[in-house]
Structures are given as C-alpha cells and as structure tokens.
Computed example of a mutant assay.
Amino acid sequence: MTRPYADVIGDPIAQSKSPLIHGFWLDRLGIIGGYERCHVLTEALDSYFADRRADHAWRGCNVTMPHKQAVMPLLDRISPEAERIGAVNTVVARDSALEGHNTDGVGFIEPLLPLIADKTRRFAYLVGSGGAARAIADALTEHGFTLSSFSRDPAKADREIGRYIPDKGLLFGMEALHGGPLARISGGADRINVLVNASPLGMAGFAPLDIAADDLAGDLVVYDIVTHPVDTPLLSAARAQGLRTIDGLAMLIGQAAAAFEKFFGQPPPREHDAELRAILTT
C-alpha cells in the first residue's frame, strides 16, 4: 500500500515546526504516513504542483511565506474563507483537483471559543496588519467581534484589514496603545475584550511590543501569536497584571489540527496537546 504523505512548502522552510506537529499526531494515531518539509522557490511553484498532482500518495501541503498568495492561481478551487482572507495556507488534493483553504483563522479562534460562549458584546484590539492579521480579523468578525486596529501605518492597515473595520475611527497608530483605548475599555458580564498581537514585535530578533503594564488595565484577554519565544514580554506583563493570556502555540496547533484532518481524514488526538506543547518548547 502506498504511504500517504503531506508536506509544507516555503522559502525558507527549515524553521517550520509543522513536520514535528503532524509527525507527532501520525505516530499517536498509528497512521502509516508522512509529513515533510519541502523548500520551494516562487519560480518553482508550477513544477512543484505538477509533480505532486501526478503523485497519488500526496494528500496536500501547508503553505508558508512567501507563497500564501502566489499559490492561489495554481489551484482548481479556493474555499470561501481563503477567498475572503486573500491567502491560502493549506492545499488539499481531492478528486484530481487542488483545493485551497486557510486554517489560520480556525486555529486562532479555537482557544477563544470557550471564553466567548456567553458574551454578547465582543471587542478585539488587533496589533499588526500583515497576512496573519487578515486571517485573524476574518475569524474575529465571523464570530461577532468589533475590531480596532493598531498599526505603524494606519493607511496600510486600512488597505489590508479595513474591510473588517467599517468604523474608520477605529484605525489607530501604535501611539494609541499608550493611555488610549485599551486603558479606557469597559467590562461587564456580557462583554469580552481581547488584545491580539499579530505583529512580529516580541519575536526573537525584534523589539518587544511597546506597551506599559499600566496600559493593560481593564478586563483584557491578551493573545500573542508569536511562537519564538512562546512566553513573550507582552504575555509576561499581562500575567503580572492578573490578566488571562493565550500564547502562539494555541494558534499554531489549532491551524495544524484543521489541516491534519483534511490531509489524513481524521481529527488529530488533541488529548495529547500538553505533551505536544512540551516537545515544541524543548
């Protein structure tokens, strides 16, 4: 029997944790299959997909930078969420066709679902305006959040995620993080407030997000999608204020889980998440 497999493509690709995650799940489920890294240059995308289309063992691929938009014209079908976001991070081989999906939003929103179940007033304060921010903005608005944006370039934020923010008065520069909307938010049993860092600030090699602990006052859930390091300065400051926090591994594992089920036909064993997290942070 041919061994089914999927892979992850990008340029560069050595940093991807996806093979570790998918390999862990394949092993726990006893599935005879594989998941590999594949370094693909932009100019080689055509030949990559031509080769994979001819390989009946191939179940699809995850797509990382810089290919999330470049792959779209090469696919046969694009899912509604990927169309809205304007990017594909998962390609599934199905019925001799290639389908493009985006699981980033699903992965992002997963840890928030238990927190919003009884909240009718939902507000999110989103830092960043890149591709990850688009997927996150899409997921938040699909779940009834009102968004505010904080970006070094509000005009760029308007272009990238403005369609999710009809009130243009909620497009702020980064300076508004100081003594601005976050410090003045209101609480309430029916309200949830979520601060999301979807920028590289706080990532190894980047400056931390410039926000003082006092500006994290209020009833905030602080969510930082950075995964290196997992415990960012922002999350540490939020915990010191007694705030709830969600780290980047939550989104990473969640988006991978949605892709895994598409590739291998069954959900991954999420009861082992704690063990997987330990491996990813070793």
Rank of each mutant, 00 (worst) to 15 (best):
A250E: 15
A137T: 03
L75I: 07
L75P: 14
D104W: 05
L195M: 09
P200I: 04
E275C: 04
D76R: 06
G179D: 01
P73R: 12
S236D: 15
G202M: 01
H101I: 14
D27A: 10
G60I: 08
A256K: 05
V221F: 08
R28V: 04
A240Q: 15
P208G: 04
N197A: 03
V88E: 00
G218L: 14
Y5S: 14
I185F: 02
P19C: 15
K262Y: 14
P229K: 11
L74W: 05
C61V: 14
D27F: 02
R163V: 03
D27W: 03
A157Y: 01
G107V: 08
G30S: 02
F264W: 09
D95H: 04
S151K: 11
M174D: 01
L249E: 00
A250I: 03
G218N: 03
G30A: 09
D158G: 02
E36C: 02
S129V: 12
P73V: 13
V222N: 00
V63K: 10
E36A: 13
L252K: 02
L41A: 05
K119V: 05
L75F: 14
A132S: 14
F49T: 07
P229M: 04
T146N: 06
L195H: 00
G128D: 01
A274Q: 07
V8S: 10
C61W: 14
D210T: 07
G169F: 05
R191Q: 08
S148A: 13
T232M: 01
G60A: 05
I246A: 10
A132G: 11
F24R: 06
V71I: 08
E83R: 11
L147V: 06
G169D: 08
G202I: 00
E81M: 15
R52N: 10
I78R: 11
A278D: 06
G205L: 08
P166G: 09
A207V: 08
T120F: 10
A124L: 05
S148T: 11
G86K: 02
G248N: 07
A204C: 06
R59P: 10
L252F: 00
L252D: 08
A97C: 15
E110Q: 11
T146Y: 13
V92L: 15
D214Y: 13
V88N: 01
A133R: 01
G60C: 13
I78D: 13
A6I: 12
H272C: 07
Y48H: 12
N62Y: 14
A257R: 03
V40R: 01
A6Q: 00
L115Y: 09
R134N: 06
A259F: 09
P154C: 03
I253L: 05
G100Y: 15
N197K: 13
G205M: 09
P80G: 14
